[in-house]
Amino acid sequence: MNNNILQNIIFFVGLILLQVTILNNVDLFGYIDPYLYILFVIIYPFRKDRIPVLFFCFLLGLSIDIFSNSGGTNAAATLFIAFIRLPLLKVILRKSEIDFVVFNITKQPFLKILSYVSILAFTHSFIIFSLEYFKFSDIDTILYRTLLTSIFTIVLTIFSLILLTRKK
């Protein structure tokens, strides 16, 4: 249990550092950065008590915001996907209850993982850009950037998931 907490802290700090030092400087096509840090939201273990997940995801987003001077956009988006991830997973897996003790997201069929990751990544990018532009007249720019960013994020996240599961 202790080992698990330490592992999560290292994962948390590692993702923030990776995001702000490397991924925020990728700038594909001039301005597309992948948000790989949502990997934390995707694979953080599912528990009955959801308060810690919400709190850690808020903290994760806020840390990214502090590094990139973006107010609270990343915090709001990460918190939102942390809130919807359990209901979303239930819908995708067509289950009314999830056995938290034995459940492991990486053991699920590939297509279900892909749709779970895609919906979370798309929602996350959409909230970030909507809050950043904050104007309905900019909806085309918001959708265009959301689409490009989320595709890039999904590809990177799936690759990272494959890498992480192969090690074990």
Partner: peptide
Amino acid sequence: FFLLLEIIAISFTIQNHSYHNSAFSNSAN
């Protein structure tokens, strides 16, 4: 709890969009 944190996050965003309030979350630390 979700609503509370979300309101905090959005208020930081709005603060960041206005010129006169100096932002709480800024990289000058």
